[in-house]
Design a protein around this nucleic acid. Structure first.
Lengths: 155, 155
DNA sequence: GGATTTTGCTTGTTCCAACAACCTTTGTTG
DNA sequence: CAACAAAGGTTGTTGGAACAAGCAAAATCC
């Protein structure tokens, strides 16, 4: 990088501490998400698909309505239908229409889905350990506290 | 929501404090990004396009090579070319091939792009103030510190 | 100073994200 | 109990994200 470019980058000020925090948060989240992508890509899963599978595993054999999946996801997803479509096409989940309320479609994780998850668990558990090893327990608690309050603050 | 569903959600444990921090970070980042989307959508800009325009405004009248834009962006972007394509098609930026190095394409922000940015500056400045108002100055500094260390830790 | 490598960008392609409109089933209300 | 509203999913469509392959100009290397 040239000297000029370096100076420009150093000189770029943040408009406010809050804007700095906002950009910092996006930058860090993207950084970590890239690492998650790297783990999931060889398995043909996106982070969202992985998220759905984990939710369904936690829900047990009864399955969950599509709408409830959307509510529980880490990131907002406006189209659970086609997200589940792809998982179904891959043979990882099954769909059955509820008998008690025929509007509802229950989604359940299948055997193949559970096996796939089992193989991801270990590397996925190691990922945050590796990326967040620099922070101590107290700092992690503080970070979680701040993040939760950030989400709750705007109401 | 049913009683059972509520209990399930309460009962979901995190595998580790680090995994909790990871998910929390993604959740919060998505939450804030949604707010940014809400501001930019009426103007037909994505957060990334907005990011490029800000970078180009900061770069001045000389413009920047495409590759340097990619380096400076908040989130990792593997395809600056078509990102700039769309901005050029919208008449917001111009491309000129560098004379000194004919491989390089310099991108400059145009009059229309500057005017568009000027209109966004105010609501965009208010956004983090509104979303992060719950945190004090010291807490913001702490948050920024933790986020920066998170990014630096994995090397 | 010609072959090779490297750099900077473009193009091809496939899949996913986002918003809206629509359809079916259930609940509600006078 | 018929008309209407609401809930739950699906489909249509457009545009963006991601990875790879390719092309032209510049740097490197005997």
């Amino acid at each position: 990088m040239s000297k000029l470019q370096h100076e420009l980058r150093q000189a770029r000020p943040f408009a406010s501490p809050m804007m700095e925090a906002y950009l910092n948060l996006q930058r860090t989240a993207d950084h970590l998400r890239t690492e998650e992508l790297r783990i999931l890509r060889p398995l043909g899963l996106t982070p969202q698909q992985y998220n759905v599978l984990r939710i369904l595993r936690g829900a047990g054999t009864d399955g969950l309505p599509s709408a409830e999946i959307g509510v529980r996801m880490v990131t907002r997803v406006p189209d659970v239908t086609r997200l589940v479509d792809r998982l179904e096409a891959a043979g990882l989940v099954e769909r059955t229409r509820s008998e008690s309320d025929r509007r509802v479609v229950l989604v359940r994780i299948g055997k193949k889905g559970l096996e796939l998850l089992a193989g991801i668990d270990e590397p996925m558990k190691r990922m945050p350990d590796k990326l967040m090893g620099g922070l101590g327990a107290a700092e992690l608690r503080k970070l979680n506290d701040l993040l939760v309050r950030l989400r709750g603050a705007q109401d």
